[in-house]
């Protein structure tokens, strides 16, 4: 999952970037509104965390512009202004949730997770599909009650597929959503990650939870 973090205060931005990365998200962090607009327009962003008091282009303007361009990803606004009138203005611009500064990073991550789940139509931190479960909060993955050890990329890949159960996800889409922008993006490595994931989730190759659709991509099959 790719998250845009637009925050001009360096220490907060870096902290958010670090903690969200630890939680398995790909983070594009920018320090002004113009860069936030560029990222929102050009990258396959799944969620944005936008501070309202951004330099160059105001946070409200960034949100309005993105919504005018039909960008539908959820937006969480950060604001130091705690009056309801100001919150209403931000939410009316197109944001989906707000968080007032100062905030606990855990609360921000919880809100981010909630927004991600909301997009996927889930209601809690536990993403499940039959015997397979992913706890977004703790990043614990279980299959038939057994803990499965995954690398960061494998987790990101599974997380994204779990949010898109029964949907065909192309290699390009996966690359955009699990790789950071400055990484070397080789779509062939996706095949490697998918193969490893299949082996870890289904060592006996009996259930085949991830299907390959030739020339189209992959699909996490919905369990009965």
């Amino acid at each position: 999952m790719r998250i845009l973090v637009a925050e001009d205060e360096a220490s907060i931005r870096e902290h958010l970037e670090q903690r969200l990365t630890e939680k398995g998200y790909i983070v594009d962090a920018v320090d002004n509104g113009a860069d936030a607009l560029y990222c929102g327009e050009e990258y396959a962003i799944d969620l944005a965390v936008i501070d309202l008091g951004l330099p160059k282009v105001d946070g409200i303007e960034v949100i309005k512009t993105l919504r005018q361009q039909n960008k539908k990803f959820p937006i969480l606004i950060l604001t130091a202004r705690s009056r309801w009138q100001e919150k209403v203005e931000g939410l009316e611009a197109g944001a989906d949730d707000y968080l007032t500064k100062p905030f606990h990073i855990e609360e921000l991550i919880a809100r981010v997770n909630a927004l991600v789940r909301r997009v996927a139509g889930q209601t809690d931190n536990m993403l499940t599909n039959g015997d397979l479960s992913v706890d977004v909060g703790t990043q614990v993955v279980k299959y038939a009650g057994e803990n499965i050890d995954l690398t960061a990329y494998e987790y990101r890949l599974l997380h994204y597929l779990m949010l898109n159960i029964d949907k065909v996800v192309s290699k390009t889409e996966l690359v955009e959503h699990i790789y950071a922008e400055d990484n070397d993006k080789d779509s062939n490595t996706i095949e490697v990650f998918v193969r490893r994931l299949r082996t870890k989730l289904d060592p006996s190759s009996k259930h085949k939870p991830i299907e390959t659709l030739r020339g189209r991509g992959y699909r996490l099959v919905k369990a009965d």
Partner: peptide
């Protein structure tokens, strides 16, 4: 009405 609409959007999920 604006405030209620925003509140509804926040808590609809």
């Amino acid at each position: 009405q604006r405030l209620i609409a925003v509140m509804q959007r926040l808590h609809e999920p």
